[in-house]
């Protein structure tokens, strides 16, 4: 508790490079960039693979590999290989880790839709893309949102770790605090990261309420 007071009460963290609002904005910026790029790649790909049934192997392999890969190792390796300087060396591993949850859930959501629903949709004369967007996508939405949530959580957590290789954001407090044995800073930073993660979690819960049809929500 004292640490929290020390951290949040210190003027050092409210202005300049280490200001909490600035670090928070940085964290959001990196996370959102990586997340948005990952979603732009993974959702269309997942829809395509789920709808056509082609390329399912990629999904399974990428899902397993992503879980096993140590994020810290991947980060330091990629950044060492590409070199520091711009944001991209850090964004690339973040994006790579963010893609699989979205890809897998989008694929599973479309693939796992009730075969009768698919059959009825085609039988009524919906064309391929109409079947996908009017019948399968709305039903797959809860799973796709779950994938997006897991991905966003991964990005926020990994962006914290990425402070170690020079990224800004909330992870800086933890990494810098550990380096200088300033445990109030470490603790305060950690609390901020937890709050951010909870906010992301809540955001997705609300999004789920807004965009998923009640007819689908009740079934699950």
């Amino acid at each position: 508790m004292n640490w929290l007071i020390e951290f949040f009460g210190s003027a050092e963290y409210w202005s300049g490079d280490d200001a909490i609002p600035l670090r928070l904005l940085q964290h959001l910026e990196y996370s959102f960039l990586a997340f948005a790029i990952a979603a732009l790649i993974a959702i269309p790909l997942g829809l395509l693979i789920g709808h056509t049934g082609r390329g399912a192997v990629i999904v399974v392999v990428s899902a397993n590999a992503a879980r096993a890969l140590p994020t810290l190792g991947l980060l330091v390796l990629v950044v060492l290989l590409i070199g520091v300087g711009t944001l991209w060396p850090v964004l690339i591993p973040l994006i790579a880790l963010a893609i699989p949850p979205i890809l897998v859930n989008t694929y599973e959501g479309i693939r796992g839709a009730d075969p009768d629903l698919r059959d009825a949709a085609y039988g009524m004369g919906l064309r391929g893309s109409q079947v996908l967007f009017r019948a399968l996508l709305p039903v797959a939405l809860p799973l796709i949102l779950l994938g997006l949530r897991l991905s966003a959580i991964t990005v926020v957590a990994t962006a914290t770790v990425a402070a170690y290789v020079g990224l800004g954001g909330l992870g800086r407090y933890i990494i810098d605090g550990l380096a200088t044995k300033n445990y109030a800073e470490v603790f305060g930073g950690a609390v901020l990261v937890v709050l951010l993660a909870l906010a992301v979690q809540t955001g997705f819960t609300l999004l789920n309420r807004v965009i998923v049809s009640p007819g689908v929500r009740q079934v699950r």
């Binding site: 949530r149 959580i153 992870g171 605090g177 445990y183 470490v186 603790f187 950690a190 937890v194 909870l198």
Partner: peptide
Amino acid sequence: MNVVYSLPSLALFSILLS
């Protein structure tokens, strides 16, 4: 459990350090 799962590991490690 959903909430727990969403917490970044580094943050939890740091908090437990104390």
